[in-house]
């Protein structure tokens, strides 16, 4: 019982991390309808920035978070100008290559700036553990789940309750028509990438105490977040959460069952899922373009 409970907690914690990163995917799908395979690199950049501000410069946690968001938003602008803007309107597969090219670029630039050795970043809780009855809970996991809830609320409200959000979704559905009715789609693109990069970087600050900070920390979690987005339903906010949590739990369950073949189970499940339920748990929110 306690064993199962601890596994569930671990699965939910990892799942929340995947969901957190998956929000960036969902945002980009809703606004510009591309898959950004460099979303994981935003996580990496965020974690390194947190190390610089928090550990090297000794800034307090709140100031670190603000600074990370600000710098990451700038990275988002540069990213948009490199990997999206010059290629907008091209077919989706182009962005697989363009975003992965920038991902290689970011990882190697990070290695030159921060060096190849990994860092520890343990703010704000250090290595402390809470006890919930017999089950140890890592407070950082609770923070991640709370942050996920807040970010989901913000993103949901933004996409569906604000003018800018509505314009974003319109621009994603039909770029040309959106332009015709006066939506400045290029500006919207920039804003979208700023938010995507910032949300990825916040995820980086949050997972750094769990993953440690290294140039390689982003790619794996980016891929998992992509899987979560697919499982949940392409472009769906609740889908990203459901997909992330499901993936986290499946992974832990598979590890408990047979750790050597864990990823084989996870990918097998994914393929099965795609065949049986190709539109994901919550269905596809983005109409397919001809």
């Amino acid at each position: 019982m306690q064993f199962g409970l601890q596994l569930l907690v671990a699965g939910l914690a990892m799942g929340a991390i995947y969901a957190l990163v998956a929000l960036g995917f969902v945002l980009l799908v809703n606004a510009v309808n591309i898959i950004n395979f460099a979303q994981g690199e935003f996580v990496m950049v965020g974690a390194f920035l947190a190390y610089t501000f928090g550990v090297v410069l000794h800034w307090p946690y709140w100031a670190t978070v603000i600074a990370v968001v600000a710098v990451a938003a700038l990275v988002g602008i540069v990213f948009e100008r490199m990997a999206y803007y010059p290629l907008r309107g091209r077919e989706p597969s182009t962005f697989l290559v363009s975003t992965l090219a920038v991902s290689v670029f970011l990882r190697n630039v990070a290695q030159q700036i921060w060096g190849p050795m990994p860092f520890a970043y343990t703010e704000p809780f250090g290595q402390n553990v809470l006890k919930l009855g017999p089950v140890p809970i890592v407070p950082q996991h609770l923070l991640i789940i709370a942050a996920l809830a807040v970010l989901v609320g913000l993103l949901y409200g933004f996409l569906f309750r604000t003018r800018l959000g509505t314009m974003m979704r319109a621009a994603s559905q039909d770029r040309v028509a959106a332009q015709v009715i006066g939506i400045r789609v290029n500006r919207i693109g920039v804003i979208t990438f700023m938010i995507a990069a910032a949300s990825g970087a916040v995820a980086g600050v949050l997972v750094a105490p769990v993953f440690f900070v290294s140039t390689e920390m982003g790619f794996g979690v980016g891929l998992k977040a992509f899987i979560a987005t697919i499982i949940g339903g392409w472009g769906s906010v609740p889908g990203a959460i459901a997909g992330g949590l499901l993936l986290g739990i499946v992974e832990v369950a598979a590890s408990a069952y047979n750790s050597g073949f864990k990823d084989l189970f996870a990918f097998g499940l994914l393929i099965l899922f795609l065949i049986v339920l190709p539109r994901g748990i919550f269905g596809e929110k983005i109409a397919e373009k001809a």
Partner: peptide, 13 residues
């Protein structure tokens, strides 16, 4: 028990 290099969760193992 085994894990893949780069894994971030070892709870189950």
């Amino acid at each position: 028990e085994s894990f893949n290099s780069g894994d971030k969760d070892f709870t189950a193992q």
